[in-house]
Amino acid sequence: MVKRYYCDYCDRSFSYSAEARKKHANGHHHKKLYQLHYEHHKTAKQRLQDELSREKCRRFHLQQKCSFGESCIYSHLIDADILKLKEQAREEDEAVRKSKLPTQVKNGEEPTLETWLSKRKEHLQSPTDYRMEDTSKWEFKYSIPSSLENISYLPPSLIPPSAESLLQITFQDWG
């Protein structure tokens, strides 16, 4: 009995050999089905980059029928479709950015340091309960001391960080 290779993309099988598999993988039909499969997993930003890198199909944009249809190597998107794709990409980027923000900032609440300190002080004064309170209710706010407000060029170490700037920090991996 000869071993058989089954291709999930093409839904067919053939005898297993390096030559047959290579021939199948390089075939037009397999490549097209492979591309169609992974097209569904692309983000709007990736699809937009792909479409903008292609030239426009002349026949399609002259309101003629493109004989290649979905397999055409040129772009069939009109300006309205490109704008919709740009909007989807922007919404995806915004959703990713918001997912990285702390819960308080997502809800539009600006945390304050004073509130956190007062809650911490209350917590330390109660000797019977050493458990941490619900930290989602704590608020943090950084502000410049009044003595430094008049200085026009503050060093970066004294500028209060925003939640946005904290998300843009890249940490060095040390091994």
Rank of each mutant, 00 (worst) to 15 (best):
M1W: 13
M1A: 09
V2C: 00
C7E: 01
D8P: 09
D8E: 13
C10Q: 03
C10T: 05
C10I: 08
R12N: 08
R12A: 06
S13F: 09
S15K: 13
Y16G: 10
E19C: 05
K22Y: 09
H24C: 03
H24N: 00
L33C: 07
L36M: 15
L36A: 12
Y38T: 15
Y38H: 15
K42T: 08
A44Q: 02
L48I: 09
D50V: 13
R54N: 08
R58H: 10
R59L: 07
F60G: 00
H61D: 08
L62M: 06
Q63L: 13
Q64M: 12
E70G: 02
S71R: 13
C72H: 00
I73S: 14
Y74L: 05
L77E: 06
L83F: 02
A89P: 06
E92R: 07
E92I: 04
A95L: 10
V96N: 10
S99Q: 10
K100A: 12
K106F: 01
K106T: 08
N107G: 04
E109T: 09
E109H: 10
E110I: 11
E110G: 05
T112Q: 06
E114C: 09
W116L: 13
L117H: 08
R120H: 14
R120T: 15
R120A: 14
E122F: 04
H123Q: 15
Q125Y: 10
S126K: 15
S126H: 10
T128S: 15
T128H: 15
D129H: 02
R131A: 06
D134A: 00
F140C: 08
K141A: 14
I144R: 07
L148V: 11
E149M: 11
Y153Q: 15
L154K: 01
L154R: 05
L154S: 00
S157N: 13
I159K: 05
P161S: 07
P161K: 06
S162G: 04
S162W: 06
S162K: 09
S165P: 02
L166Y: 09
T170Q: 14
T170D: 07
Q172W: 11
W174Q: 08
